[in-house]
C-alpha cells in the first residue's frame, strides 16, 4: 500500500517499523499532511509569514530529528503539536515578558511574611486558584492563564484562541482584572489576604 493510501496512525506505525531511506517516504507523507495545520499555528503565533515559515521549518526539523521519541501512544498530530507549542511559546517568551500589571502583582505579593513563608505561599496559590474559578468564566480564565502564566502577548492570545470579538483577548483580560479587583476588595474588606 502506498503512503498516500494510509491513515495518519498507519503511516506513523510504518515509520516506527522502518528506518533511514525506507522510512523517508512514509515520514514525508505524514509531515506533508500537517503542513497547513502547523503553518496556521505558527502564523497565529508570529503574525508574520516569514517568521511563521521559519518557525514551522524548525518544528518539522525538530520533529524529524526526534521522531524516534514518538512511540505511537498519542496521536501523531498531538505529538507534533507538543513540538509546535514548545517552539512557539519559547520563541514568543524570548522576545520579552508580557506581564506588566503592577496593581495585580502587588495584590498577589501582599502578605504577612511570617516564619513559614513557603506554607503561606502555598496557601496563597490555592486561594488564588479558587478565586480564578469562582470569579472568572472559562474564556477569561484561559486568557488570564496564557497571559500571566505563559506570558503570551494579548495579540498572540487573540489569534491562538481565534477570538473574534472586537478587541480580542484584551476585552477578556480587562474583564478578568475588574472582576478580580472587586473580589480582592471584598477579601481585603474582611481583613483577609488574597
Amino acid at each position: 500500500m502506498q503512503p498516500a493510501d494510509l491513515a495518519d496512525d498507519e503511516l506513523a506505525a510504518e515509520c516506527l517499523k522502518r528506518s533511514g531511506a525506507d522510512r523517508a517516504p512514509y515520514l514525508e507523507e505524514l509531515f506533508r499532511r500537517h503542513y497547513a495545520q502547523v503553518a496556521r499555528w505558527c502564523y497565529r503565533f508570529t503574525n508574520d509569514r516569514d517568521a511563521a515559515a521559519d518557525l514551522a521549518q524548525d518544528v518539522f526539523l525538530k520533529a524529524h530529528r526526534s521522531f524516534d521519541s514518538f512511540r505511537g501512544q498519542a496521536k501523531f498530530s498531538t505529538w507534533l503539536y507538543s513540538i509546535a507549542r514548545h517552539e512557539g511559546i519559547n520563541r514568543t517568551q524570548r522576545k520579552g515578558p508580557a506581564m506588566a500589571d503592577e496593581e495585580l502583582l502587588a495584590d498577589v505579593a501582599a502578605s504577612d511574611e511570617g516564619p513559614d513563608e513557603a506554607a503561606q505561599s502555598g496557601q496563597r496559590g490555592r486561594r488564588l486558584r479558587e478565586l480564578l474559578f469562582a470569579t472568572l468564566d472559562r474564556t477569561e480564565r484561559t486568557v488570564f492563564t496564557l497571559h500571566y502564566g505563559k506570558e503570551l502577548p494579548l495579540e498572540t492570545i487573540t489569534r491562538m484562541l481565534a477570538l473574534d470579538n472586537a478587541s480580542g483577548a484584551k476585552a477578556y483580560i480587562v474583564s478578568a482584572r475588574r472582576k478580580l479587583a472587586r473580589a480582592s476588595g471584598r477579601i481585603k474588606a474582611r481583613g483577609e489576604l488574597l
Binding site: M99, L105, A106, V108, R124, G125, R126, L132, Y148, G149
Partner: peptide, 9 residues
C-alpha cells in the same frame, strides 16, 4: 507577585 502568580496558575 509574578512568581506567586505563575506558581498559582
Amino acid at each position: 507577585g509574578r512568581e506567586l502568580l505563575q506558581a498559582a496558575i
